[in-house]
Design a protein around this nucleic acid. Structure first.
Lengths: 214, 214
DNA sequence: CTAACTTTCAATAGATCTATAGAATTTATT
DNA sequence: AATAAATTCTATAGATCTATTGAAAGTTAG
């Protein structure tokens, strides 16, 4: 009768398996991801998201306290898997080339198979106020650090050129992968494994012909 | 007294030098570019753009018939220079490496020196309805074609590896450049020429150490 | 100085869209 | 079956925001 919690959206960081709720909340995140990916954060309406889920606009607020929170959760959702997988790859003891292939594969596979959330993370996260981006930022720099570490190892083992700037290369790899990731999302006909292979090849060998027959 | 053209925005494809008008219209496009780059198309308001120009919200419609038209013009504005410059580079008779350097330089310089419009073109053009994107699309494919042609020449002259997919490489180059372009826009401390050099180097030579001392 | 033209302004209608609140319905529990 | 709890609905206030309109202010030219 007083102010009980009528709104699940308020008590929302527990991992407790309210099974029913948790499952539909996930659907909500995925619906938001799809809609944000298509129309952009500001271009999308809560109505769009609700429609995607087959519920009424107002009902959406049972799952999200605000549209902004929805964006935040979509971004985190899209990015968490991705960083987790990266950690696993880096932990394994593998030759450099294999690691790099695994990294590119992980990155691009994530785009194709799973989430518009990846796209939303890339394109829309800057519309979040800084407070809401803290976790995402942390994940992002974790990811880059891991990647730079892999590159540093590669240099140490003499597989990579010694004069490389790992920071620069890390950003570039992420750039290429994101760019192709977007293409994969946009164009269903694009072959995933072909793309993976070509990206890796470009990153490793560049374009120059090193054995020119004269 | 009937319906005369009170609105310049309606008669707007003439290159005639209404000097005063033309100059301020350019300021309008640049203001829109800045605001769209910061807040995104849907996140920006006509009020924001007007404020950036120091005029009232309603007055903006003297220069643009609609917010959407503003976006279209910003995208075209950002991209035209860019394609024009590309043509010049390709026409010149130069060795492959020089051409590639020039292309990367042109691309990144355009980001740093001139326009948020580049950013808007990249990030926001898909929010335009197809009709409004016709010109932009044409320019885009012109650009890619030119780039692919340069690459094909490189292969022919045996400077580049024969097994390259020019289409793929072209997209990748654009991807890397856009990615670093965004970084250049976001981070003023980033050195332009350093970035250019590193991008070119990566594209040409990749990362692998081709002369490993054992 | 006056008339014609250009540019800006102020005010607003009409159309959103977010978020809230309380009722209605469905689902789970005793 | 009766009660409690969870989920969804309807309706709406309040806050935008775009685009229009006609008047005001500024500029140019005769």
């Amino acid at each position: 009768m007083t102010n009980e919690t009528h709104n699940k959206a308020e008590q929302d960081q527990d991992g407790a398996d309210n099974s029913k709720y948790v499952k539909k909340k996930l659907l909500a995140i995925e619906a938001a991801a799809k809609v944000f990916a298509d129309k952009g954060f500001h271009g999308a309406t809560t109505q769009d998201i609700a429609a995607e889920m087959g519920i009424q606009q107002g009902s959406l607020y049972y799952y999200f306290k605000s549209k902004e929170q929805a964006l935040q959760e979509v971004c985190e959702y899209g990015f968490e898997h991705y960083v987790t997988r990266m950690k696993k790859i880096c932990d394994k003891d593998q030759p450099f080339e294999a690691k790099m292939l695994a990294i590119v594969t992980s990155h691009l596979t994530n785009y194709r198979s799973k989430h518009s959330a990846m796209k939303v993370h890339n394109d829309q996260r800057l519309y979040l106020p800084t407070e809401r981006r803290a976790k995402i930022k942390k994940l992002g720099s974790e990811y880059r650090d891991l990647l730079e570490q892999v590159l540093a190892e590669g240099i140490e083992k003499n597989v990579l050129r010694a004069n490389l700037d790992t920071h620069f290369i890390a950003y570039s790899i992420i750039g290429i992968c994101n760019s192709w990731g977007s293409n994969l999302v946009r164009d269903d006909d694009l072959d995933l494994f072909d793309t993976i292979e070509q990206c890796s090849d470009l990153i490793l060998h560049g374009t120059i012909n090193t054995t020119p027959k004269m």
